[in-house]
Every structure is written in structure tokens, then in C-alpha cells.
Amino acid sequence: MQSSTQFEQNRAQLEQAVHNTVTDPALRNAMLLNIAGMAAAMQTEIRMVDAALRTHHARNRARGLAGWILNVRECAA
């Protein structure tokens, strides 16, 4: 989470620098589009990592519960 916050802060600073220093409108728009593309890619990466971590956690949790149930059955037998 800290990395994404830092990325967003740096993205905002970069956009501000482009707005303040690039005078050619076409070049400014191209640069801002590239920055937006990087931000979108970062957000996609964050969502994919979050989904993978949730899936991993759910699998480990389910395995733990299944293992516990099997142990209870073995003890009862």
C-alpha cells in the first residue's frame, strides 16, 4: 500500500512538472497520456496482486479447515 501511495504522489508531481514546463500542447498531451497509461498499469497490477493474495489466503484457510475436519474424523474413528 505504501508503494502505491508513493507512486501516486510521484505521478502527481510528474504531471505538475509537465504542466509547468512543457509548452508544446501536443507534446504535453502525449506526455500526460503516457503518465496516465503508467498509472493505469500500476492500478491493474495492484488489483491483480490483491486478488492473488485473497485467493491464496482463501485456499490456505480452506485447507486448514479441511485438515482440521479430517483430524476430527480420524480421532472419532
Rank of each mutant, 00 (worst) to 15 (best):
A66D: 01
M48C: 06
G37T: 11
V22S: 10
N10V: 08
D50A: 10
R59V: 03
T21C: 02
G37H: 07
A58D: 14
H19P: 04
S3H: 02
V49T: 13
L32I: 06
T5L: 12
R28C: 08
N60F: 02
A17V: 09
C75Y: 10
M42F: 07
I46S: 05
T44Y: 01
A76D: 14
R63M: 10
T23W: 00
W68T: 08
L65E: 08
G64W: 08
A30K: 12
W68C: 04
L33V: 14
T5R: 06
L14Q: 10
G64A: 08
A30Q: 13
H19Y: 10
V22I: 15
M42H: 14
E74S: 09
M31G: 03
V72C: 13
I69G: 04
R63L: 04
M42P: 07
A36D: 11
G64P: 05
T5V: 10
E45Q: 05
N20F: 00
H57W: 05
L53R: 06
N20Q: 15
A58F: 09
R28Y: 00
Q43V: 01
T21S: 11
Q16I: 02
M31K: 12
R63F: 05
A17H: 12
I69M: 03
A26F: 01
A52M: 11
A17W: 08
L70N: 14
N34H: 11
D24W: 05
A12Q: 15
R54D: 14
R28Q: 15
A40W: 00
R59G: 01
N60T: 09
M48L: 09
R73A: 14
N20W: 02
R11P: 01
M48V: 10
M42N: 14
N71L: 11
D50M: 09
T44W: 00
R54Y: 08
T5N: 03
V49F: 08
L65T: 08
Q9A: 07
F7C: 04
R28A: 08
